[in-house]
Amino acid sequence: MSKTRPTNESDAVRIFDAETMQRALRRIAHEIIERNRDLSALVLVGIPARGVELARRIATDIEAIEKVNVATGVIDVSMHRDDIGTRAALPVVKVSQLPLPLDRRTVVIVDDVLFTGRTCRAAMDAISSFGRPACIQLAALVDRGHRELPIRPDFVGKNLPTARAERVRVRLENIDHEPDGVWLLKPEKNE
């Protein structure tokens, strides 16, 4: 998830292009519908920045399939992280947006890449500070493994076995001003 290097590196393997990503998101939308009978209680909560965009896209898909309105939200995780002070750069804190109260809601956390699970834990903590949802589920565009916490996704775009040193790069047109896509990047030789 590096933000600086270009996407046309020779050793980058493409995992999703725009079309396959869209299909994966549509399948996630169907699975969410299947799992959750009461869609009015649903809220898709994205983790900034790409999770917010993915949540919006999945919500649009659900609305197109079921002809209902689906609530979306934003959950900031940066002030709930457990690695503040150990990273070179601080994450920029964003304002969270959730439909309150959460009591009877089913919250689906949406993120681009599921890796150690620590971001998801931070998101669950952050959500809990707003109230007590009936249920929390997790959707990720890519699950790359290497969990450090007992967390598993409910909805996955693609299971992608990776080596720890590899990186997964996600690009979304509305966020990155580049065509939609996901790439797996091999570690550089000098690393």
Binding site: M79, V93, S96, S128
Partner: peptide, 24 residues
Amino acid sequence: NLVLETADAFKQVGTREVKKVPAL
């Protein structure tokens, strides 16, 4: 501007049920 935007996020913490975050 970064301080002001960060303050936007922390101002919202005061409206939550749990007005405390583990950041520090």
